Amino acid sequence: MRRVIFNQKGGVGKSTITCNLAAISAIDDKKTLVVDLDVQGNSTHYLLGKKITDPDQTLAYFFKEVLNMNLFGKGDDTALLEGVIHSTPFPNLYVLPSHPELEPLQSRLDARYKIYKLREALSNLQGFDHIYIDTPPVLNFYSRSGLIAAEQCLIPFDCDAFSQEALYNLLATVAEIKADHNPELRVEGIVVNQFQSRANLPASLVQQLVEQGHPVLNSKLSISVKVRESHTASKPLIHYLPDHKLTEEFIALHQELHS
């Protein structure tokens, strides 16, 4: 299963949701891969405890080589991808790291229409039960590549009025990608993040989305300072605080997605 976590708004918890769901999947004895398409590299740092300085050990190498392949026949995209997969300190959990060099590659990749290359490589990648794709907080070449490569799309929603308006545009974007590039893509659900159950506005906004027929997931994620602590420790919550309330919420979300 290839799942993309996508929102064009920053600060909604894409990397946190990506890495924590992936870590729970790995704990569940599933060989799991995180693909970090965000040049900020937050998922990379969260899972490895560092960012990779050598671009040739990251996704930047994969995309550079994709640009160099056409002169002498078709290359092996999947082998390129396999060459930059890193194991994490956590059993069954792997990451394809990001790098700032992805940024200047975008215009060349776009101009030469390499938008399907990630999907082709991931589709032929053997041995992984689950693949989670983290995307940048903007609609660009990499986020479109992630949407085209995925089968399911999770959308984080952080319970404010601006996010609600942006959500409608985002759903339209996903529908357009599905129609034009990836008929397999399905919005799996909207993940309510940073939820305050006792506050009126978040509950009201979530209820509106439900009444409008949007696929809001039952499992909601609370606000907690422990998220930032787990980032600092470079340990997903299932490893950092396995009995914490937020960890239990992530486990419930994972179970809902796989029920």
Rank of each mutant, 00 (worst) to 15 (best):
R2D: 01
V4W: 03
I5N: 06
I5L: 15
Q8D: 11
G11K: 00
V12Q: 05
K14G: 12
S15C: 11
S15D: 11
I17R: 03
T18A: 14
C19E: 02
L21K: 07
A26K: 04
D29F: 14
V35R: 07
L37D: 01
D38W: 04
G49Y: 09
K50Q: 08
K51R: 13
T53L: 07
P55D: 03
Q57C: 08
Q57V: 00
T58M: 09
T58N: 07
T58W: 05
L59C: 08
K64F: 04
E65I: 07
V66D: 03
L67V: 11
L67G: 09
M69V: 00
L71Y: 06
F72L: 12
K74E: 15
V84L: 13
I85Q: 13
H86M: 02
T88G: 08
T88F: 06
P91N: 12
Y94I: 06
S98L: 06
S98P: 06
L102K: 02
P104L: 06
P104T: 10
S107W: 02
R108L: 13
R112V: 05
Y113T: 13
K117T: 13
A121Q: 11
L122K: 14
L125H: 05
F128I: 11
F128E: 13
I131W: 07
D134S: 14
T135W: 08
P136Y: 02
V138P: 00
N140R: 09
G146L: 12
G146R: 10
E151W: 00
E151C: 01
Q152V: 02
Q152G: 01
I155S: 01
I155E: 00
D158A: 10
D158L: 02
C159T: 15
C159R: 04
F162C: 02
F162K: 09
A172T: 12
A172P: 00
T173C: 07
V174H: 06
K178L: 01
A179T: 05
I190D: 02
V192Q: 06
Q194T: 03
S197A: 15
N200I: 12
N200K: 13
L201C: 06
L201P: 04
P202R: 06
A203H: 02
A203E: 13
Q207A: 15
Q207I: 03
Q212T: 02
P215W: 03
L217Y: 04
N218A: 07
S219D: 09
K220S: 03
V225T: 14
R228V: 08
E229R: 14
E229W: 05
H231E: 14
S234P: 11
P236Q: 09
L237A: 10
L237V: 07
H239T: 07
Y240F: 15
L241V: 06
T247V: 07
T247E: 08
E248M: 13
E249V: 11
F250E: 05
F250I: 05
H254M: 00
H254Y: 15
